[in-house]
Amino acid sequence: MDKRVLLIGGGKSFMVTSISKELKEQGFEVVQAAPDVTEIEHIENRPNVYLIYVDDVDEMMEFFVYLRDKSVETDISISVIGSPDEIEKIYTKTSKDKIAAAFERPVNVKELGRAMLKVVEAEEVRLQKKRILVVDDDGTMLRTIKEWLSEKYQVFMVNSGMAAITFLAKNEVDLILLDYEMPVTTGPKVLEMLRSEPATSDIPVMFLTVKSDKESVMQVLSLKPEKYLLKTMPPAELIANIDEFFENQKIKKYM
Rank of each mutant, 00 (worst) to 15 (best):
I52N: 06
G82L: 10
S216E: 11
D85R: 11
P204C: 00
I203R: 11
N248T: 09
A101P: 06
M193P: 06
M1P: 04
K146S: 09
E197S: 10
E247F: 09
E88L: 06
D69N: 15
L23P: 02
P198A: 02
E237V: 14
M116V: 07
E25M: 10
A240W: 04
L142T: 03
E237K: 13
Q26F: 07
I251C: 02
E123C: 00
S201A: 10
R114E: 10
E121T: 05
R114Q: 09
V54I: 15
I78F: 04
Q249R: 13
S77Y: 05
I239N: 11
F103L: 11
M141W: 03
V205W: 02
A100R: 10
K152T: 07
S212W: 01
Y66W: 15
G139K: 06
Q154T: 04
E39I: 10
P188T: 02
P35A: 10
A163M: 02
D136I: 06
T185G: 00
L149I: 14
D174R: 08
Y228R: 04
I76V: 09
R131N: 12
K21V: 04
I76E: 02
S150H: 08
D136C: 10
F64S: 03
V184T: 14
E121K: 10
M193S: 12
E147I: 01
S222D: 15
R131T: 00
I242K: 01
V125Q: 07
L229Q: 13
V109T: 03
L177V: 05
E121H: 09
V220C: 09
P84I: 00
T232L: 12
D85M: 13
V5P: 07
S95H: 11
L67E: 14
E121F: 08
M116N: 01
T232V: 14
V210M: 08
I81R: 04
V155K: 01
V37A: 08
I90M: 12
L178F: 10
K252L: 13
S150A: 09
E88D: 14
V155M: 00
L168A: 07
V49I: 12
D55N: 15
E123D: 10
D75G: 07
E226F: 11
K129Y: 13
K110L: 08
M233I: 14
I242A: 12
N48D: 13
S212T: 09
M61F: 07
K250R: 14
T185M: 15
I99K: 05
L168S: 11
Y228P: 07
I132G: 12
Q26L: 08
M116R: 01
E41I: 00
L51N: 02
S95I: 07
S201C: 08
I251F: 05
L238D: 05
E215M: 14
G161K: 05
T74S: 03
K211A: 00
K252F: 07
L178H: 07
V57P: 07
T144F: 03
V109C: 10
F14S: 09
S77N: 04
Q26C: 01
V135T: 11
E247P: 01
G113H: 06
L23S: 02
V30P: 06
I239T: 15
R126N: 09
I81F: 00
S13W: 12
S18Y: 06
K170P: 00
T74R: 05
L117D: 08
V210T: 15
A115L: 02
A169M: 14
G10N: 10
S20V: 12
M157W: 06
